[in-house]
Design a protein around this nucleic acid. Sequence first.
DNA 1: CGCATAACCGACTGCTTCAGTAGGATTTGA
DNA 2: TCAAATCCTACTGAAGCAGTCGGTTATGCG
Lengths: 158, 158
Amino acid sequence: MLFSTKAEYGVRLMVALGRQPGSEPVSLSAVAEAERLPLSYLEHLVARLRRAGLVTSTRGAHGGYSLARPAEEITLDVVVEALEGQIAPMECFHETPEGKVLCSHESDGDHACATKLLWTRVQGGVTKALAGTTLAELVEFSAGGGREKAAPALGSAA
Amino acid sequence: MLFSTKAEYGVRLMVALGRQPGSEPVSLSAVAEAERLPLSYLEHLVARLRRAGLVTSTRGAHGGYSLARPAEEITLDVVVEALEGQIAPMECFHETPEGKVLCSHESDGDHACATKLLWTRVQGGVTKALAGTTLAELVEFSAGGGREKAAPALGSAA
DNA sequence: CGCATAACCGACTGCTTCAGTAGGATTTGA
DNA sequence: TCAAATCCTACTGAAGCAGTCGGTTATGCG
């Protein structure tokens, strides 16, 4: 498994917030009930999202969470990274801010790290998929698009 | 981390076998020494590769392992899958042989699984990267291509 | 034959992460 | 003041990771 349920639950949480039309916050317990996820576990996840600046919180009664930015401007790479930590295919694999790839055992033996080419490609594939998806897409997909197979009509088979 | 060292070590093992020019087998201890990896751990990994039909073994003295097929015909998706098990972005995510995607909690609540679109894209990105890479490429890369930027000329302390 | 070499196999271990629980403290609207 | 909510730390059982260990079987060679 590439990702744990932290990413799964966390993304679903974000989508739930993205569904909220106005700017009033949604309480975690409401999300937990709607998504059938354990509330106390969601607390941990939302804390990560908040620390990453993806959601804002309002405390006290009638409080809750809302997206810090419009869903169209939130790409899933930052969401998943906030939840799961740095995304790399391998322990020895680090990407610097400038985009250079470092490999811990670069000059291990007689030849260059044989796997670097592979992990670089995998990394690229994942990053492209995540960064190329916005939260707004997922909200729309879950609202109607994903239901197409179940609900008739709506000829928007993209 | 997307993958564990099982994939890392296992791929390096495969590359080491792919470097062998003739068809005579390479002993695990030789690979372990060359790659500086624990021999007894490699035994577990090579067992997976053998069960997957990727390498063949000859027992007894002067025995060892060799690739079951030429390196050009081995793509890395089957290698990594043999080592890590089924590759899926998420626990709830299963792909049938026909390519259909199943999601455990498909009809959980009021709407379709919000994350399905995302995981499908991620899955596609990873699969494409792995299936689009052959073992022969990695062998070649590690033999010379990967060294180009690191080694100025020949005088490098190898 | 006998021995070194090497593949094979299963059990075990320390460690870390995962998934979730528990209990409380703090803030805020009514 | 009370209830609803965020916030925070600590804890726990289970699982997987990375690796070790001991032993069994098969084989080439002197």
